[in-house]
Design a protein around this nucleic acid. Sequence first.
DNA 1: AGGGATCCATGATTGGATCCCA
DNA 2: TGGGATCCAATCATGGATCCCT
Lengths: 233, 233
Amino acid sequence: MPHISDVIDNSSQDTKKHNSTRELLTRARSLAGKTFAQFAELLGTALPRNNVSSKGWFGQQAEVYLGATAKSRAEPDFVELGIELKTLPLTSHHQPKESTYVCTVPGEIMGQQWQTCWLRRKLAHVLWLPYEADNKIDWAQRRIGTAILWQPSKAQHDALKQDWEELMANLSLGEMAQISSHQGQFLQIRPKAANSRELTNMVGSDGNSTPNLPCGFYLRPDFTRLILQQHYN
Amino acid sequence: MPHISDVIDNSSQDTKKHNSTRELLTRARSLAGKTFAQFAELLGTALPRNNVSSKGWFGQQAEVYLGATAKSRAEPDFVELGIELKTLPLTSHHQPKESTYVCTVPGEIMGQQWQTCWLRRKLAHVLWLPYEADNKIDWAQRRIGTAILWQPSKAQHDALKQDWEELMANLSLGEMAQISSHQGQFLQIRPKAANSRELTNMVGSDGNSTPNLPCGFYLRPDFTRLILQQHYN
DNA sequence: AGGGATCCATGATTGGATCCCA
DNA sequence: TGGGATCCAATCATGGATCCCT
């Protein structure tokens, strides 16, 4: 049984966390309407000259601006808040343009559980940062949208859980090579590598290790579209 | 049963290997008597300005000069010959100045066997390249010695095997933290890291993973002293 | 003088994602 | 238009070892 002071401390922590979360959202929303060029100026950095060679630029600079602490580490972007930052490219019709990368598919399949898996933790609390990604708009002139702080609804959670468990079951059945991007209603598994010759080792349920393309979990556009609708309607 | 042509091919391979090994030794010995400054000039590179910040310089440049193929990979330096290159720093009395790093201690202890372990493969065939390492000699003026091509004698092999099996047995008993550099007659285990705060995961015989300092196997000077004596007497 | 601590280079891995063709 | 392929930055891990204090 916790001592009363622990309860008081926790409660105080929760209040701080709540306030910090609101500050984070406020700061993120202060970017709404700004172009990439204006954003770069805010940061005092130069815009990369083209988008092909700077795919992750906006996401990484947004982390810097919002004070994310985890640089390429296996932690939430905002550790103390448990919040993950994800940029969300939009078409000219303000629909998701792409699937959204979530995290890498674990190389060790055995013993993975939904309750504790990395994907679930990543998607437990997300700060979405939409932006214009229509190729007809000059890159420097693309505008940042209004940030959305989101947690999965019961239905969304359950749908993700079902997809995840189906995909993981298929993986453990052995042939990673047979896993298709077509599986999964909202979640899919796709290659995630520098190139198609890259290989890592997958350890299957039989304990054997086989070389495979590194893969990642991606959210299909249908899923992120729901999030946008949920917020704007 | 092999076809007769396979036998002929192998024999041809062996001859090539023999010749290449002699060429390697000859090329290595052509460095005998040269100073670091002269060696750097041979390579067309600059000498690093001090030795503290360039600990691996000679070893790495020697690999380049001798055509080693494995750059930081888990292979022998000269893959086709199965030969490992090791530089050997000497005192003013031409005795080994330091213990000699061999390889990292595997993070997975279970199932390790002497017959197939990396340490045994590394030490199966070594091209030793001695050089003056007395701090009283200006770094640029240190001279390279006569290369020695070495394979362990039966007695040396057995002694290494005994040390290795003793050390590995201790590791698998659990407490990596309790392993001491004092153990082992010719072989020891010591830290091998950027700094003492670095940690990696060790998987013990119980299958549990515990964080530990990354460690390496080192040959004690007594061992390399034997190799020098064996050759020069 | 032995052993705990440390230094550099480079390849591999991971986290940020979007590209782009059939 | 979906999914196979790819791009950059930064960290991590490994291979090359020697430093340097007690």
